[in-house]
């Protein structure tokens, strides 16, 4: 399969009060389309920095980053914003929904910044996604009225709305209890089974166990890069035809 993410010798240096911090010291990595990667490592190992780089939230000090066919390491702020709105989906530890917006409106936000004219069709698509994550009966609720797990499900739907190349998840279960965590991970796995590429930062081994590939980092380097064989085999058996078993599509019709 084609590499959807390819980084070459990525270096990131911060200056914290004139003290040089080398967060990434030349990381190279390729991720295939349809892969499910867990980034692990102790704090300060550079895993969050790497995720920010992958999420085009920051520019590297040196090195190259190809997302699909595009070299994004040389892009300016506006172009990066456009890449984020079109090709990336984000899931955060603290859900990060907008409190003023309803469930559907929260899901719509990435489309808004893509410059797509919001109409009945886009709304239908957002409702479809909300229904897919099991919130079809709470379309007009506000985040404050939802539980943590429900909020994270809204976040998942939001991450899917632009049919992204890659979903980036930053400790998606960090604020959830273990039962809800499993529920969220099941959903992520389901997405992955439908062909979505997921890169997830976590420090819990049992969460990382859901991934097909586990990358451990230390001091700005990749320490190890292993395949979770039971998961890989599982995927091969799953039928990848773009729809989940329950009939939900992952691509917006006509968008």
């Amino acid at each position: 399969m084609a590499d959807i993410v390819r980084i070459i010798d990525l270096v990131k240096i911060y200056y914290l009060e004139s003290v040089e911090v080398q967060a990434l010291r030349g990381v190279s990595l390729s991720v295939e389309e349809g892969d499910f990667v867990a980034l692990m490592g102790p704090s300060g190992s550079g895993k969050s920095t790497l995720l920010n780089q992958l999420g085009c939230l920051d520019r590297p000090t040196s090195g190259q980053y190809f997302l699909g066919d595009e070299d994004v390491s040389e892009m300016d702020d506006d172009q990066l914003s456009e890449i984020r709105s079109k090709y990336l989906g984000f899931i955060f530890q603290s859900y990060n929904l907008l409190p003023q917006y309803t469930v559907v409106e929260n899901i719509e936000v990435p489309l808004l910044y893509q410059g797509i004219k919001l109409n009945a069709q886009t709304r239908e698509w957002c409702i479809h996604l909300a229904t897919m994550v099991g919130l079809g009966d709470r379309l007009d609720h506000r985040p404050m009225q939802l539980s943590g797990g429900q909020q994270q499900r809204v976040a998942i739907a939001r991450a899917l709305v632009n049919d992204p190349h890659v979903i980036l998840a930053d400790e998606p279960t960090g604020n959830l209890d273990s039962r809800t965590s499993d529920e969220i991970m099941e959903r992520l796995q389901q997405l992955n089974d439908m062909g979505k590429t997921i890169i997830m930062v976590t420090h819990e081994n049992d969460i990382a166990a859901w991934a097909k590939r586990v990358i451990r980092m230390r001091d700005g380097h990749i320490e190890s890069d292993e395949r979770n064989h039971h998961r890989t085999i599982g995927t091969k058996l799953a039928k990848i035809d773009g729809t989940a078993g329950n009939g939900f599509a992952l691509r917006p019709a006509g968008l």
């Binding site: 702020d77 914003s81 456009e82 079109k86 984000f90 990060n96 990435p110 910044y113």
Partner: peptide, 13 residues
Amino acid sequence: REIGIRRALGAKR
């Protein structure tokens, strides 16, 4: 934080 979220979701400056 809201600004950060919006920026992450693709809002330009």
